[in-house]
């Protein structure tokens, strides 16, 4: 059942921003098939770690392996399998919701884009706003659109950076369901959140960060 390679393997990973270390000498291994809860205060390195795992950036020192593939060397392949829901939405403010999604579908080389985009918009409840530019959206609507962008990819590893922020209670419930659905479909989840209880209900492992280092929660 379990593949021999850990889903995520951090090997003495450090990342510097300017003159401070966002992540410092971090080693960790997430077994395949398990999902991870990432906790820590603001500025503890959660976001940086997720960005490194998603190949948006790379460690200053040390190595990260995703399903056994080193991120720096195998970035092209990994990017098809890993998706990141980050603070930054990656959306183009001047394009409409539908245009943003269609663009991603085209870059991914997907077929039947119209239907796909329509069904995703339906799923996140934004069908009526499909042709409004993102600039007019509220924070919660952007978040939903960002989720649709992530789902488009059908990733093997999905990284969620504060997914519950900016969502209303109904949205939080939907998000929890979504995370369960993804896991049921075999996607490995990494969840960074301050809502520890909700997070623990959804995941099996926990990694607590303090100033870029691994600590007891």
């Amino acid at each position: 059942m379990l593949s021999p390679q850990p889903a995520i393997q951090l090997d003495d990973v450090s990342k510097r921003f300017g003159s401070r270390w966002a992540v410092a000498r971090l080693s960790y291994s997430l077994p395949a098939g398990r999902s991870l809860l990432l906790t820590g205060h603001n500025g503890s390195g959660k976001t940086t770690l997720l960005r490194m795992i998603s190949t948006a950036t790379f460690p200053t020192a040390g190595h990260i392996k995703i399903f056994g593939a080193e991120t720096r060397e195998k970035r092209e392949e990994l990017r098809h399998d890993v998706a990141l829901l980050s603070h930054a939405s990656f959306l183009y403010e001047d394009l409409t919701a539908a245009q943003n999604l269609t663009l991603v579908a085209e870059f991914l080389g997907l077929d039947q884009r119209k239907e796909l985009v329509a069904s995703l918009l339906e799923r996140i409840g934004l069908t009526s706003r499909a042709d409004s530019p993102v600039r007019q959206f509220s924070a919660g609507m952007r978040k939903r659109l960002t989720i649709a962008r992530l789902l488009m990819k059908a990733p093997k590893l999905a990284l969620f950076d504060e997914p519950f922020g900016e969502l209303d209670p109904a949205g939080i419930l939907q998000m929890e369901n979504l995370l369960r659905e993804l896991q049921a479909a075999g996607t490995t989840i990494v969840l960074a959140t301050h809502l520890v209880e909700q997070g623990q209900a959804l995941t099996q492992e926990r990694l607590h960060l303090d100033q870029g280092r691994r600590e007891n929660p």
């Binding site: 410092a24 000498r25 870029g212 280092r213």
Partner: peptide, 17 residues
């Protein structure tokens, strides 16, 4: 000064998951 790696974690913070 900027390129030195941070020190390895002190042993007192050994983590038990």
């Amino acid at each position: 000064s900027a390129l030195e790696l941070p020190p390895v974690q002190a042993p007192k913070t050994e983590v038990a998951v």
